[in-house]
Design a protein around this nucleic acid. Structure first.
Length: 216
DNA sequence: ACATTAAGTGATT
DNA sequence: AATCACTTAATGT
């Protein structure tokens, strides 16, 4: 057995022996390849063709989406024990990657050629479970990201609302309750309280009972 | 001092 | 982000 294969075997057994059956482990050793990646390296870029699926043994990979302006948003992170099931769908459809993957911390991974990924789905229960779980987990993480983004937008909206209100009232001090602000902005009092707290921590406003003071 | 209402928090979905 | 279930703080009587 080549040195590369034996390290692959070692890493695989260390990390996946409990979740994959013996035959699958053997197949992975056969077709997989072990790779170390340095922090900062780019694993895959948007538009690249996917050829392999990574099983992360150690380290962190950040999955990023980019908009027209080159603004990046982190969708989720792949860590030890993770794989990228989303990229797996890309593989089956022979489509290009929608994401960019950047190594955030030195990473070790086992790379599986995409054609096997599909075959194993039917062949191994543990593999199917692994992929489905991974998919599920990724989805949850992404929903959380969406929530976070939506949250930020509401914070901006809220600040604008306060500024506008202040202009209309010609007063830096607004006599208003969180409840009323919530109603105006179609959200809940609790959310308003939390966002206002953040604005206050940023020094943009001061909160008093029944009043909000806009700072400069 | 006590009740009422506003605001803050942590956990959950 | 919304909701729940409390807790804590401010105010009125």
């Amino acid at each position: 057995m080549s040195p590369e294969k034996s390290i692959l075997k070692k890493k695989l057994i260390e990390n996946y022996a409990t979740i994959f059956e013996k035959e699958l482990i053997n197949e992975i050793i056969e077709v997989g390849s072990f790779q170390s990646l340095k922090s900062g390296e780019q694993l895959i870029d948007i538009g690249d063709e996917m050829t392999h699926i990574p099983l992360i043994v150690d380290g962190v990979i950040k999955i990023i989406r980019e908009d027209e302006n080159g603004e990046e948003i982190a969708l989720y992170f792949l860590e030890k024990g993770d794989t990228c099931a989303i990229s797996f769908v890309n593989c089956i459809n022979r489509t290009k990657s929608m994401f960019r993957g950047v190594v955030t911390r030195d990473t070790e991974g086992i790379f599986i050629p995409v054609n096997k990924v599909d075959i194993w789905l039917q062949k191994y229960e543990s593999w199917r479970r692994f992929i489905i779980d991974s998919y599920h987990f990724r989805l949850i993480e992404m929903v959380e990201s969406i929530d976070r983004l939506a949250f930020l937008n509401v914070e901006k909206r809220l600040y604008k609302y306060l500024i506008d209100k202040s202009k209309i009232m010609k007063d830096k001090t607004l006599i208003i309750t969180h409840q009323e602000i919530a109603e105006d902005n179609h959200t809940s009092r609790v959310v308003v309280s939390r966002l206002l707290k953040r604005l206050e921590n940023d020094g943009q406003i001061t909160i008093r009972r029944n009043r909000i003071i806009i700072e400069n």
